[in-house]
């Protein structure tokens, strides 16, 4: 059964492999270039919280040099969704074209057929998204060294969550496909749904899965606890000279500081670097959990309702 399932998803597997190859062609040369620049600029010596002006200048130069690529790579957070949705196609096309009637009247039960077909699809999604995450983790490593792994673009393209995202997109497309038996509509809506779910989690749910911390300090030097942290909101001073800023994704621990603030009391809400794994694991569990429910639903609906 599994060999048959492989053969029947060959096109989609090839497309997914093609997408990964395309990314590799872009990322491997630029990644080598970036790693070389990181070492030749001596940036690994600049890995500290309160760095001197020469380090700051070099980091600034390094980051502006690779800024275009970094911004482009942030978009790769959509790729796991694309992989997941694409891999649902062989299953939905089977229902849409009626070929399941051929498959289910061979010598094996439809339970075995579903297990084989869905199992291989999930496996392909896990391997492909895992490869993507590894590639991105390697590519992003100089920036992760400088900015921390909670940085946008590292956190959601180079962590284990990527696998969760891909199987979630796959599960959503499978469930819609089982209901509608229309591949184009199911894949499109599933991709939009993936995007909506990501926005919901990024902007609202994530900081409720693992609560951010709060901290206060006085003066311009940033405290140790903000090293590689992700700042949700920050405030300082009071009255006329005070400021308040924030946003769900915040920024890296670089603050916009008003005027002469050497004695100002600052306050920040932040996710410390140590929250990387708790955040990754809880978010991965959330996405894979929903994916498991969706895939189980697709299997059950197909087994019981389709003839």
């Amino acid at each position: 059964m599994s060999r048959v399932a492989w053969r029947l998803q060959r096109t989609e597997t090839a497309v997914v492999a093609g997408i990964l190859a395309l990314l590799a062609v872009l990322l491997i040369p630029t990644g080598i270039q970036m790693a070389n620049a990181y070492h030749s600029d001596g940036l690994n010596a600049c890995r500290a919280l309160n760095i001197g002006p020469s380090c700051a200048a070099r980091i600034g130069e390094f980051q502006s040099r690779f800024q275009a690529l970094t911004v482009l790579a942030n978009w790769f957070t959509l790729v796991p969704g694309l992989i997941g949705v694409l891999l649902a196609a062989p299953f939905i096309l089977d229902l849409e074209h009626g070929t399941y009637r051929l498959a289910w009247t061979q010598g094996i039960t439809r339970r075995r057929w579903l297990a084989g077909k869905l199992g291989i699809l999930v496996l392909t999604a896990v391997v492909a998204s895992g490869a993507l995450a590894l590639l991105m983790a390697w590519w992003r490593s100089p920036q992760a060294d400088l900015n921390g792994r909670l940085d946008t673009g590292v956190y959601d393209t180079a962590g284990i969550v990527v696998v969760g995202y891909a199987v979630f997109a796959l599960g959503l497309a499978l469930a819609l496909g089982a209901l509608w038996r229309r591949s184009a509509a199911s894949l499109t809506v599933a991709f939009v749904g993936y995007f909506a779910m990501r926005i919901f989690v990024d902007y609202w749910l994530r900081n409720r899965l693992v609560s951010p911390l709060q901290g206060s300090w006085r003066g311009l030097r940033q405290p140790q606890f903000l090293y590689h942290a992700q700042i949700m909101s920050e405030s300082g001073g009071s009255g006329k000279g005070g400021f308040k800023s924030g946003g769900p994704l915040g920024g890296h621990a670089q603050m916009a500081v008003p005027g002469n603030a050497s004695h100002t009391l600052f306050h920040a809400v932040y996710q410390p670097a140590s929250h990387f794994w708790p955040l990754q694991l809880s978010e991965t569990a959330l996405f894979t959990g929903i994916a498991a429910l969706l895939i189980a639903f697709a299997a059950w609906w197909t087994h019981e309702r389709i003839a």
């Binding site: 059964m1 060999r3 048959v4 053969r7 029947l8 096109t11 074209h97 009626g98 070929t99 009637r101 051929l102 498959a103 061979q106 010598g107 094996i108």
Partner: peptide, 20 residues
Amino acid sequence: PLYRALTIAETFTLGRRLNA
């Protein structure tokens, strides 16, 4: 219904693998 992307030989292979 048949899998249009398969050749006849591959279709038979599918039959062989799915039937004892």
